[in-house]
Design a protein around this nucleic acid. Structure first.
Lengths: 209, 209
DNA sequence: TAGATTGTTAATCGATTAACAATC
DNA sequence: TAGATTGTTAATCGATTAACAATC
């Protein structure tokens, strides 16, 4: 896509811009300069202008940026207007919490089904979903045009599951398993690693003393 | 502390080294060179040696690194041998999932209590914990030597709660609220922002087409 | 118009990689 | 000893910040 190699550093700042601009909208603020945004978001004004200009010239000299327009633009850049079908695999504590997470709609993701390998879980109802048998994932993915899998299973067997998902045609994985999955380059993996986050907190606590 | 300004980039790689070295131990591998580790972890051998040498010379020329010794060293660097008391605030879906998360012990953290502001939740039992009234957090923190708070509450009111926690003497916050908390420099905040992660996945999915 | 603020180029800073002498 | 691999310095690369002409 028309995308001149944006660095991960820039990409990971985009959701933050989106969030802060949304907050400004909630406060009915119509207009903001890179300097003002810098004061509240904590990046330099220069960095903000550099970041945004990777995607287009959204501002106006002497004026700044229109908050609503910029918010919408960044939403588009993030692909929040694109709809994706998702399945969640592993309906344990974390899986259920994620299934109940309300942020999916805002991101354009729709959970189509929950899966679990544990016979005791299969058939149970979580929210609007009956938990289905993990055995049937491939079929479901193919029949329901599923783009994204959310993996909330134990480490053991996670790579094997990822292989199956990839074979079934999955395009992206939101991975909560503390493992670096080995997938083809074309498949996007976004990791949420709670252990790494907790260990980082541990390090910083110690360093602070 | 004796800590010559390690960059965040290095710090965030440490948990990954720790994890991969643990995996090697599980496979009874005693010895590894930076080149071999590079092949499995995906960082360059040069980066691995640079990273480790921020903390000491753990290797031996002509031999490489002793896996067990290096694993233990990084554990110490991460402060996994230091014990901290924690409380979890917000016993909703995510809060309960986090409370059930088994990784705390490995990181040296012990959850001492769960809190919630919702009268319907107060008194319920989760695992070994009765949910306590958020009103009583300050007192509990002071009386039980609590170092860390895990925040799993809604955005609204989160900054006010953080202020109360700081006043009560909290040293670190594991923050699951999609907000950048404003706390004194001496208080460590480690954010887990699911929305930002999901938006990043959305961006990458779109960019891949 | 004068003032403000962008978009963008140039300068700086920091992180990663390469190279190699030291040494096990 | 010869071979291997570290620890560390130097070179490169990329990201951030500064500066300022363009322009609303």
């Amino acid at each position: 896509m028309g995308n001149k190699n944006i660095s991960m550093a820039v990409i990971r700042r985009l959701p933050k811009y989106y969030r802060y601009l949304g907050d400004l909208l909630d406060r009915d603020i119509q207009r903001i300069s890179s300097k003002e945004l810098s004061d509240i978001i904590g990046f330099t004004a220069s960095q903000i202008r550099q970041d945004l200009n990777n995607f287009g010239g959204f501002g106006q000299q002497g004026y700044g940026y229109n908050v609503d327009a910029l918010h919408k633009e960044i939403g588009k850049i993030l692909g929040l207007d694109t709809k994706y079908n998702a399945v969640l695999i592993g309906a344990g504590n974390l899986g259920q919490a994620i299934a109940n997470y309300s942020g999916f709609r805002k991101a354009g993701f729709e959970i189509k089904a929950l899966f679990d390998a544990n016979p005791r879980m299969i058939g149970l109802k979580i929210r609007d979903f009956e938990i289905l048998d993990s055995e049937d994932i491939e079929e479901f993915i193919k029949e329901n045009d599923v783009d994204i899998a959310i993996m909330c299973i134990p480490k053991k067997g996670s790579q094997e599951l990822a292989d199956r998902l990839v074979n079934a045609g999955i395009k992206g994985i939101w991975n909560f398993v503390p493992v670096d999955l080995d997938v083809p380059e074309s498949v996007i993996v976004e990791n949420v690693n709670l252990t790494e986050s907790l260990f980082t907190l541990s390090y910083l606590m110690k360093a602070e003393d």
